[in-house]
Amino acid sequence: MKKFLCALIFVFLLAGASFGAGKNFVDAGILTYLGTTEQEFQSGLDDLRKAVAPLLPADEDKGEWASYDRLEGFLDSLVQQRRVIHFYDSLLSMQMALRSHKIDEIALPEPVGMYLISNNPKYEIYFSLNMMPSTISFGFKHGNTALQKEFNTAILAMRKDGTLARLQKNFVLELPTGEPEAVKFTKFKDAQTIRVAVTGDLPPIDFIAADGTPTGYNTAILSEIGKRLKKNIRLVSIEAGARSAALAGERVDVVFWYRNTEGLKAPQKLKGKNLKNVMKDNLEGVILSEPYYEWDTDLIIGLAD
């Protein structure tokens, strides 16, 4: 019996090793898109891959694709090797999967990716995707258009007067390794209190300091919005996976971050392939504000060894 069990284990190990050795795809981890399933995302990406392959120009004809420079790296890479997508609810679980070789690479917004590799030399950038501008917005419960409008007014004013750019510079772009300083919130007597969910899972954009208090870009931007709206802000720390439940259950009024994919469109050459159908983060019951953070580049990060 013992011999039989040993033989069985050996066969399984052998089968596993040969399966792994013959792998002709890349296991890629991304943060969960709340508005779509892993299968739908995979199917959308596979469709995109099929559509892109015949359109990709030969090396000598790359000039023809001059207007698609930003897409080139992504398309080349996607066609060369199929990406099998794995969703992770948190950056932490995604890192664990990468470290344990469950996945080969992870995709992160540039500021988050830079923070990751600056703080842990075990990671390195495999390549950058200058694919399309990506944005993050506040999320509100469907129907709460009054608060959405107030936030939009504040964000647009902050964008216009350069406050957004200044906060991004001070709290994200010039802060790859260090910890951001604490921001004070102005108290308004007898004013409404807006409860905002933060996760601490997207440093340095959504960040929780060593003493357990939310600090950095999330607090800086919310403090500024609070001042402009003359309302008090109360930060509520929750798990990233509970963001929509917190909004739906009205435990919070605003969720600090949702990826805003409303504006994503593939280039004309890929007619009918609207990327927002694939990369859908916003749920039916959630409405989004004007974006408050934008970046052009996603980093594909893997283990340094």
């Binding site: 932490l92 664990m96 842990n120 357990g212 720390s237 917190a246």
Partner: peptide, 27 residues
């Protein structure tokens, strides 16, 4: 309990892991 806005031991550990980007050691 981190899912219902309570900062317990696991949530603190997760926050530290995210802040330091050292998940294996922190966990």
């Amino acid at each position: 309990v981190g899912y219902v806005s309570i900062t317990d031991l696991t949530r603190v550990i997760n926050n530290i892991a995210s802040r330091t980007m050292q998940p294996m050691i922190t966990i």
